[in-house]
């Protein structure tokens, strides 16, 4: 399957197969008025396995924390004038701000207005994030 190369935009590559749609939703790409292609189950040249790819036909600002949270290890390629100008491998962020919401009904974030929903990385090895306020673990 072929998708045309983009001239100016972003390619999010090496997404773990099956996580492409979650990234699409958390990045709010559905709200953009630009062409976005999601390729699911593409063959990875790294290991021959499957991966997802998202191509965005515009040089928009990306929340790298979302990528690092959902799928650390993805790469972001910035394309300008048809050329790869930057390639970044995304790691897990130490803090997540307003990416997800705490599900604990006893947490202050369930009632307090105008408060950032903040999660901190407490266990990098097991990819565990906890709410800054109530320490509830995020179910990935």
């Amino acid at each position: 399957m072929n998708i045309d190369a983009i001239q100016n935009g972003i390619v999010i590559d090496h997404i773990t197969a099956g996580r492409g749609m979650r990234i699409y939703e958390l990045l709010g790409l559905d709200a953009l008025d630009v062409s976005v292609a999601i390729i699911k189950n593409a063959v990875s040249h790294r290991d021959g396995g499957k991966k997802d790819i998202i191509k965005i036909d515009s040089d928009i600002a990306i929340n790298f924390d979302v990528l690092g949270f959902v799928d650390p290890g993805v790469t972001v390629n910035i394309i300008r004038n048809g050329q790869l100008v930057e390639k970044r491998r995304i790691d897990m962020p130490e803090r997540l701000v307003n990416v997800i919401r705490c599900k604990n009904p006893r947490c202050i974030t369930s009632v307090e207005r105008s408060i950032d929903h903040v999660f901190k990385l407490t266990d990098r090895k097991n990819m565990v994030y906890r709410c800054l306020y109530c320490e509830t673990k995020v179910a990935q």
Binding site: N104, R106, C107, I108, T109, S110, V111, E112, I115, C131, L132, Y133, C134, E135, T136
Partner: peptide, 10 residues
């Protein structure tokens, strides 16, 4: 003292 968890941090 507050019934919600994390209220003191806020």
């Amino acid at each position: 003292r507050h019934p919600k968890e994390g209220a003191a941090l806020v």
